[in-house]
Every structure is written in C-alpha cells, then in structure tokens.
Design a protein around this nucleic acid. Structure first.
Lengths: 300, 300
DNA sequence: GATTTTAATGCATATTTCGTATTAAACTCC
DNA sequence: GGAGTTTAATACGAAATATGCATTAAAATC
C-alpha cells in the first residue's frame, strides 16, 4: 500500500467513475483501474462494486476504508507541509545570544523583530552573553546564532558576517577639559586612567588601549575591571577615569558623560552575526541571509 | 512523498546508519541513500546531517518530521489492518431476517451465535419477518441475509442455500381420534378444516394443502387466516381445526396439540439462507460459507 | 600516513507504471 | 430487440523508477 494508491482511491470514491477520476488525477483510465486493483489486492478484498459496468459504488469494506484513507492522506499532507515549512525556516526554535551593547542600539531587537515578521511561528530565545561566552556556546551547539563584537580571529567551526560597523569612542566626564575638543588624538590620553569591563581583556579592548598608548607614546594606566559597559559609563560620570566604549553605547545618553572619537587610531569594533559553519538549520540560514540584506539595519 | 520513503526514513532515524538501516529494510545501502535523497528533495530540505561521514544525525527539520512520519505510518498500518479485517468479514454490520419458526427451533440464534464467536466485532441486527417480506427486503438491499422457508422459485438476483431440512406436519388436538395414529395419510384429512397463517398463501402453504386434498381425493376446507403459526397451534388446541406447520414448530410443545407426519404426500419445507447473488460483502460470504459447513446445524 | 569505515555516485538491470489500442460487458435509444 | 454508446478491464510496448553491484570520496582510526 502506497500513498499513490490512496490518492487514486479517494478520487475514485469521490467521482465513482474511473475515467473522470483519471482525469482529475492527470492519469488515464487504465492506470486508475490498475491502481485500484493493486490496492484491492494488497488489502485482500474489493473496495468498489463494479459488476454492473455502469455506476461504480463503494463496497462495505470500501466505505469503511474511505475515512481511513482520507485520514492517512490528510495526516501525510500536514506532515509534509510542516516539514516543508521547517525546511524553509518558518518553524522551529532559535537560540540567539547578544552582547548588551547590541541591545542598547536596538540592533539585536530590530533584527529579531524583522525575522519574526517573516517567520512568526519560530520560537526565538534571546540570551544576553558577552562575546567570548557566545563563541563558546555557539561552538558547543547551545546557541544557534550570536550577535557579538568583532574579534581578530574566530574558531574555524564558526562563521561570522558583519552586522553594524561600530567604532570605539572615548567616554569622558563632561567636566573634563578634553570634552571641549570635538575629536581626540592618542596623545591627549597620556595621563588618562582607563576603566575596562571585566571581559575587556578577552574581548580585545585591552589590546585596543595598548594600541592607543603606543600611538600616543605612553603606557596606559588601567583601573580594576568593572561589571559591564554601563558601569564603565557610570564610573566615567563619577570621574574615576575614561572609558573605551562602542559608539552605540551613546544611545544610553548617560548624564555627565560625552563620547569623543579618536582621530589618529583606528578603533573599529563592529557587531557581527556568528553561527556554526556546519549548521544546516534552515532557520539559521534564513536568519543569516536576512541579516545580509541590509547590513546596516536601522537602529529602531 | 510515498510511504516507502517514510518507512526508510523511520528506520534510518532509528539506526542513524545507512548500511544497518538498509539491512533492516532488506535493501542495500545505495538504495537507502537514494530514498532519503528523494524524500529530502520532495520536502525541500535536509533531514539528516551527514557532513561528517560518520555519525549521521537528524537535522532540526528531521527531528520535527520524525514524529509526523511515525504518525503517518501508524495511521496507515491501522487503516490497512481495518480494511483487511473488513475484507475478511471480521468487522462491519449485518442485517439478518428470520422467520419466527426458525427462532422456535433455535436455528437462527444458533447460526448467529456461531458466527459471532468467529467474528465478534460484527454488528448483527436481527429482524423477524415472514418469508415473502424477507425476499423483498433482500432484493431492496435492506437485508443482507434472510433465514426463511423454501419457495418453488426466487427472484434471480437472490441465491439461497439449504439450512435445515424441515417437513410440514399436521397439528391435531390430542382429543382427535386421529391423534392415536402414529402416521396419517392424505385420505384421513378429508373432513378436516385447515387453519392457515395469513402469509400461508403467499408462502406456499395453501398449495401444499391443495396437493394434500388432491392426494386424498377431497376439496380442502380452509378457515379464515390467523396471525402466525403460534395462533394456528392455539386454534388447533381450541378444537377449531387442524394445522399444517413445520416440524420445528414442535419445539413449542403446546399443551393439547400433537404433530403427525403425512406418509403419502411429500411436504418438505426446509429453512434456507438467502442473500443477494451480487453481494460482494465478505461478511455475507463468510456467513454463507459458515452455514454450509454443517448444513443441519444443531438446534441448541 | 596507511587503513578502515561510511555514504554517495556511475552504470547496467530489473521492476513498476504508464499510455495507446483493444476488448468485453452493460446500458440506451430507436 | 438489435445497433450504437458508454465504461471498465486487458494486452502490449514504452517510459520512468528503483535496485544492486562496483566504485569513489571523504572522514575517522590506528
């Protein structure tokens, strides 16, 4: 017994006429005759009465089997549709990590929102995690996608694509004399004390500060690490030092803090979207593809 | 998508190994590869991850589709089993008519009881109807089987098979002098008044009495018709006349009535089992076949 | 780095299914 | 009641499909 048999059976039970059923199925009448004969043989009994050549009717067995056949076909159609939707990335579950600074600018939320308008049945789970942790979790398969900051290198099993070209800026107290300058130079920061988040070293911020020191000709002074970028800004506001924070952190508008670009040192720190290179999930593929459509997706 | 694909898919999802799955299916490994490839193509997405040649795993889509595939296969198996039982005459509904006299001897009940021990899931509906009515209802399709008395002829669309070789006997009041004789002859009934049931003419009893009269050389005297054989016997007991009743009516043992055989006239009136000649129902076929096993089925 | 394991592919074959043409049976219409 | 029509089954060759064997490709293991 195959689904093809049941499709023919259902159509013939509707039409009660071999030639018309064949027409509806895009077959010829002999093909229908044989399909029905084969099904009857496999079930071990007649499904249609056709002793009198005209007016085909269902036998008792056929009448009993018809709802069964319909149920099988409908179930098969539902299953097929579900698999097709899943294959197209319209249903399923997606674990997405994001760095807090991606939330400030609304990048993460905007991406997910855009995805959900296209695939509303996908169950998206968001986790705020710092960049190194996301890379770990992605590799371990506990995350499907990560929205994190660019790194000089990534594990080979991961692939990343650019999401937002962010630059790092210097956060200063507005009372600082340097706040008056529209743009800073590395040398301006010779006597600065830098406040870093605890993940700053692992995430490459320390390396950036050292590059800054090298360009300005000073050994940078680093304060004890703080919890996150928000604490960095709060500390700057309190006058404990200066911070190196992503431009998008400016979206926070913390009272008493200003952000200034550094003119003579490249301090890029884009947001990227990472995933497992081998991930075959159509959801992930679809998400990545969508994110590429407008790499600089709006902040709202 | 065909059931064959799903069977292969389910097995491979169990084994997660193409060669072992092929073994279990009685196929070769390339056949399994191609069945899966075809299913994946028809669904528009991968069901298994096999980038790393060893350790095949389900993709998210595959994992989602697996319970669907199982449900389709189980439903198909249930439907197939149901149809097969129906084709073997193990499930369904059977409308059976019977004449009251077939109930007296227990013939009808015994037959049905025997059938139900073999096919307990069949829904049997019994209707007490006289012979001519059963023939009508059978032809009209409102009865599937009839247990009735032999007729000289039946409509061509019906077929009958013998069930019980019954003979008609003369019912006499035990006060009647003829009750002393062990066997009667036609001539003994010259002055008898015959009591017939209302269906007696149509069912051929009148013809039998006339044959009796002809053999005995008298014109038979017929009383106004009564309701049924039981009323015939009651009337005989009351001394209103004599009756012509089936031997199996003796099972009633009505007080004051004796049955006597007629030696010189053949008065056969077997019970037969009738059905539509064109009836393809396996239930009917099965019932007829069973009834033929022991044509003279026991009275209990 | 050689060997083994495992899934995919190439190719010829076997099976199945299909369509065209024909047949057989029943119904219709005159 | 006989000729024509309708309708399902059958015969047969062709096309499509699936299968098995042999081989290849890629990865894992030692």
């Amino acid at each position: 017994m195959e689904l093809a048999h049941l499709r023919v059976f259902e159509t013939l039970a509707d039409e009660l006429h071999f030639a018309r059923a064949a027409d509806r199925l895009g077959l010829t009448q002999p093909a229908v005759s044989r399909q029905i004969a084969a099904l009857e043989a496999s079930l071990g009994g007649k499904l249609f009465d056709r002793a009198k050549r005209s007016q085909v009717t269902l036998t008792a067995t056929g009448a009993l089997f018809l709802p069964e056949a319909r149920a099988i076909l409908r179930q098969a159609e539902r299953g097929e549709a579900l698999a097709r939707r899943a294959a197209r990335g319209e249903v399923g579950r997606l674990e997405i990590g994001y760095v807090a600074s991606a939330a400030w600018g609304g990048v993460a939320a905007a991406l997910v929102r855009r995805f959900l308008t296209r695939a509303p049945k996908v169950e998206v789970h968001l986790q705020e995690l710092e960049t190194p942790r996301q890379i770990e979790e992605l590799a371990a398969g506990r995350l499907d996608l990560g929205i994190f900051r660019t790194r000089p290198a990534y594990p080979t099993e991961l692939k990343v694509q650019p999401l937002l070209q962010d630059t790092l800026q210097i956060a200063l107290p507005d009372s600082d004399p340097r706040a008056a300058q529209p743009v800073l130079h590395a040398a301006d920061l010779a006597d600065a004390r830098f406040i870093l988040p605890h993940f700053g070293e692992e995430a490459g911020f320390l390396a950036r500060i050292q590059a800054l020191g090298q360009a300005g000709g000073f050994p940078p002074e680093i304060q004890p690490p703080v919890r996150d970028f928000l604490t960095v800004l709060t500390s700057v506001s309190a006058g404990l030092g200066v911070g190196l924070v992503p431009e998008s952190a400016g979206a926070l508008h913390l009272q008493g803090v200003v952000l200034r670009r550094v003119a003579d040192v490249a301090l890029n720190s884009g947001l990227v979207l990472g995933a497992r290179r081998a991930d075959s999930s159509p959801l992930v593929r679809r998400f990545l593809q969508m994110a590429q459509e407008r790499p600089k997706s709006g902040h709202g």
